[in-house]
């Protein structure tokens, strides 16, 4: 039964994600990509559980590496999003520039 409950949560959250993103302006594509990249670092939660639980030697080592990797993703992702958005602020007075780093 827990499995079905989890599926409900998954589908509802996925639907929210769909609705929220479907009308994003072109200008924000790259920052949004960077921000969702940082959010995908949520696998940090799973890594912490593996690194901190007493699952034996190898899982703990794998967990510690996973924590480091996921944390790199989270920290780097949020800092870069912040930098990108700060850059937009400065360009606000020149609305002619599309300011899209990706394309």
């Amino acid at each position: 039964m827990t499995g079905f409950f989890q599926l409900y949560v998954f589908i509802l959250a996925g639907f929210v994600g769909f609705l929220v993103i479907s009308r994003v302006p072109h200008l924000l594509h790259t920052p949004l990509m960077a921000a969702t990249n940082a959010i995908s670092g949520i696998s940090l939660v799973g890594s912490i559980v593996l690194a901190g639980g007493q699952y034996g030697k190898l899982p703990t080592i794998l967990g510690a590496i996973a924590v480091a990797c996921a944390m790199t993703n989270v920290v780097g992702g949020f800092i870069i999003t912040d930098r990108m958005l700060t850059m937009f602020k400065r360009r606000d007075d020149k609305p002619s520039s599309p300011a899209d780093g990706a394309s």
Partner: peptide, 14 residues
Amino acid sequence: IIAGALDGASGFIL
């Protein structure tokens, strides 16, 4: 599950 699904759906639609 929630953050992953948000990310999965938004990444796809993006």
